Computed example of a mutant assay.
Amino acid sequence: MRRFLLALLLLAAPAWADSEMPDAEYANRQLEDPRAEAEAHALMQELRCLVCEGQSIADSNAEMAGDMRHLVRTRIAAGEDKAEVREWLVERYGEWVTYRPRTSNPLSWPLWIAPLALVAVGLWMVRGRFRMTRGEGE
């Protein structure tokens, strides 16, 4: 019986992780200005949820994503443009927060070079295969 209760408590632990605080004002509420909301939503699609990792903050239901949506909307409503808000979030949370890393950062160069290198290696391998096939037929 004790093991059953312990297992039940362990399974319920994630439920205790939710806070009892109310959502931020603009976490789930759109801005009144449609143009500002469109700009904010476009930026939210480009930002990664720090909790979910695989979702943008626009799609995530995590509290952290709601707080980030609130930050984006309040900064856009205050007159900042998308680039300024993105830069502020990158400075605060790191380059990983954005789905569009800067090309000026040397740490992101492998992300841009690796696909080109893989295509080049693939073409080289295909070229070698065609040479072997053509050489065998003669």
Rank of each mutant, 00 (worst) to 15 (best):
M1S: 13
R2N: 08
R2V: 08
R3P: 09
R3G: 15
F4N: 08
L5Q: 13
L5P: 02
A7D: 07
L8T: 14
A13I: 13
P14T: 10
A17S: 12
D18K: 08
E20F: 11
M21T: 15
P22H: 03
A24Q: 05
Y26G: 02
A27F: 02
A27R: 06
R29A: 08
R29G: 00
Q30A: 14
L31M: 03
E32C: 00
E32M: 06
E32S: 10
D33T: 06
P34T: 04
A36K: 15
A36V: 05
A38G: 08
E39A: 13
H41Y: 09
Q45T: 13
E46A: 14
R48S: 07
C49S: 14
V51Q: 07
V51A: 10
C52F: 06
E53T: 14
G54F: 09
Q55F: 10
Q55L: 14
I57W: 05
D59W: 06
S60L: 03
M64W: 04
M64Q: 14
A65L: 07
G66Y: 00
D67I: 07
M68D: 02
M68V: 07
M68Y: 01
M68P: 01
R69D: 04
R69V: 04
H70N: 15
V72C: 05
R73G: 01
R73F: 04
T74D: 04
T74Q: 12
A77L: 11
G79N: 09
G79C: 06
E80I: 00
E80P: 00
D81N: 15
D81P: 13
K82L: 05
A83K: 12
A83D: 15
A83P: 04
E84M: 08
E84H: 05
V85D: 00
V85A: 03
L89M: 15
L89S: 03
L89N: 02
V90E: 05
V90H: 05
E91V: 02
R92T: 13
Y93R: 03
W96M: 05
T98C: 06
T98K: 02
T98V: 07
Y99M: 12
Y99C: 03
R100W: 09
R100I: 11
P101H: 09
T103I: 15
S104W: 02
S104A: 13
N105F: 01
L107T: 10
L107E: 15
S108C: 08
S108Y: 04
S108H: 13
W109P: 01
P110T: 01
P110S: 01
L111E: 09
W112V: 04
I113K: 00
I113E: 03
I113A: 12
P115V: 08
P115T: 06
L116D: 03
L118T: 10
V119R: 02
V119E: 01
A120C: 12
V121N: 00
V121K: 00
V121I: 13
V121A: 14
G122Q: 04
G122F: 04
G122H: 01
L123A: 12
L123Q: 02
V126F: 10
R127H: 11
R127P: 00
G128I: 03
G128V: 03
R129I: 06
F130T: 08
R131Y: 05
R134E: 13
E136F: 05
E136T: 08
E136Y: 07
G137P: 00
G137R: 14
G137S: 14
G137L: 14
G137W: 08
E138F: 05
